[in-house]
Design a protein around this nucleic acid. Sequence first.
DNA 1: CCATCTTTTTCCACACTCAGGACAAAGTCG
DNA 2: CGACTTTGTCCTGAGTGTGGAAAAAGATGG
Lengths: 396, 396
Amino acid sequence: MRRMTARPENAHQARLLRLLRDNGSNSRAQLGDLVDLSRSKLAVEVDRLLETGLVVADGLAPSRGGRRSHNIRLAPTLRFLGVDIGATSIDVAVTNAELEVLGHLNQPMDVREGPVAVFEQVLSMAAKLKAAGLAEGFDGAGIGVPGPVRFPEGVPVAPPIMPGWDGFPVREALSQELGCPVMVDNDVNLMAMGEQHAGVARSVGDFLCVKIGTGIGCGIVVGGDVHRGVTGSAGDIGHIQAVPDGRPCACGNRGCLEAHFSGAALAEDAEQAAREGRSAYLATRLETAGSLTAADVSAAAAAGDTVALELIREGGKRLGQVVAGLVSFFNPGLVVIGGGVTGLGHTLLASVRTQVYRQSLPLATGNLPIVLGELGPVAGAIGAARLISDHVFSPA
Amino acid sequence: MRRMTARPENAHQARLLRLLRDNGSNSRAQLGDLVDLSRSKLAVEVDRLLETGLVVADGLAPSRGGRRSHNIRLAPTLRFLGVDIGATSIDVAVTNAELEVLGHLNQPMDVREGPVAVFEQVLSMAAKLKAAGLAEGFDGAGIGVPGPVRFPEGVPVAPPIMPGWDGFPVREALSQELGCPVMVDNDVNLMAMGEQHAGVARSVGDFLCVKIGTGIGCGIVVGGDVHRGVTGSAGDIGHIQAVPDGRPCACGNRGCLEAHFSGAALAEDAEQAAREGRSAYLATRLETAGSLTAADVSAAAAAGDTVALELIREGGKRLGQVVAGLVSFFNPGLVVIGGGVTGLGHTLLASVRTQVYRQSLPLATGNLPIVLGELGPVAGAIGAARLISDHVFSPA
DNA sequence: CCATCTTTTTCCACACTCAGGACAAAGTCG
DNA sequence: CGACTTTGTCCTGAGTGTGGAAAAAGATGG
């Protein structure tokens, strides 16, 4: 079911669409204040957008002391699909044109089952959301995958944790299936875009967004734009050396950050602690579940388990060491920490902060907030919607 | 002696001026191929530039099969001043509008003598270059200082190795003295711009430029533009921890890269080796000179001294560890190594390369050249000229 | 040496865009 | 109810840029 979504005809229209996306409904007069176009010109462009159906009239705005202005908003029927494929689960969200989440589904799924199985799942989730009446069709879809992506083509390249995905034409295939434009990016970059659009990073031009999941990655935003690097692997900080001659890592080196702190490493450490009898809480948990995850450590910490707390603190210190280096190098205006293990919360945050503030120079840390992401599991999906909306709201 | 340099009236003219700067003399027809403007429009803009005197006619171009085209070039009387203030010496260069170095002076001087003394020296060097007939006046000057700069205002902020410079209005003061526009930036950023304009980094959009001098810094170029960070301290990698619990550093921490490898650290290590009698070459040198510098180590290495070579290799390994992390994080298309100790040359390079290729992931290092800068001591001055020319060649 | 073909440049007419003013419509406020 | 403010529409005039025609300058081939 192909939907022909109109596209803006020029940069002015694109600008207006993005303003409406970011600021919501707006009066014509207000728009005039924002865009520095003559009233005549603005009227023409708005009329054209109304004709194409991308925006609709939306009643009258409250008076600002004179005649009331007509409100304009993005077409309420526009729908974007945001897909965040993680290592062990899939998040799918439907948003309207303002990128508000109308519905959200989460399914556990191992990305290693390969692109065909995963996309089957994604499409069925999308269908379920449609069946719930949230969308009739999609005007665009953003897809996040847990590995490097050749961005212009929308193709994963040499993804370490996604065997079978290398070179798979994700963009092409999903565009075919969904009948709408599709953009693909690294999941961490999308999380950064999500927090930038609707989360803690609003109005920050340069920031880092560290995502701790099964692995560790870092979204880099420079001047409002995501930096992807020449091969799309920028932000891949999981294999930076955190401990000289430390633990062996799947990548073949030793002491990688990921080997010492990540969802996977944390789970292993916890199991070991449980087996060695250092934590009664974790031992019980291990016995009932058969294995432990980062979430178990999080729960243990919340229950006051000292071993769990110590694991988190130690991990935060490792992470903080690496982040301190990145802060010195990049001098961001904000550091966001998010991902599945946000449940580790303030213990982790405190540990990272301590390390960064101690190790980086005052000029770089002086006014540097280090905070948790505020969008939780939908950050990636919102970022994905943002990605594709940027594409759809740009001149054809 | 104030010179009123004309400025381009619009973006098209600015574009043309930069093309002429980067490509040298050019025929009108060739320009037409490059800029995607109608012939009429192009003719008008070129004529206006001719009127303002920013460009001049320059004979006829060779025929391309028909009527010969008129050559156009930037006014040959335009002069930029490039100043690179290092920790221990000052480089001043005069360039024409194409940023070719017409004359270059170098003077040892300790930056700690403060801005007043330093600028006195700079002005006297500029006067000397003028007296040599290289310039009548300057149409702009770029200044590099060895510390963080609040870029828009051109003011150093909290520079660790430049006490007395904090908050000094460098841009304002020099603009007054020289009677021309002035821009100020970190010396490392300027070196990066220099290598980008005329050195190894031509045609690379994203790259890192590591400068090893008295300290260590790193210029970051993203999408062709220098990234300065929110407080102007981006690229300050000298205080990234390279050795856990390593040597104490002036910054108060331990194990900073700069404490283990930099011009200053190298000199100290060499002196110690000399005193301990581990190297006859260095011991002799120490006796005659009273102290050692990085240049001595360089000379010793060239002479085959094993201790010197080992010092360089060890330092390269430390540097390589840090650079490997930056490569993973930033995924650049090129890494340039330059600065005063380029004399350490290929020994250093080999050591850094080994470490980076070993520690970073193949996707990031797959096609990553790591090379020495090719502009030597004038890289900074050329970058400074480039900086100010970008400013002068932009609409007023 | 001349005729023909190319390339470059200039000139010009036409279309298009856009800013800004005038004016009508719709509200507020006293 | 009247004066003032804000918003929206219409219209004109200035300016800009495109593309064609033709002239200028040279190359090529007989």
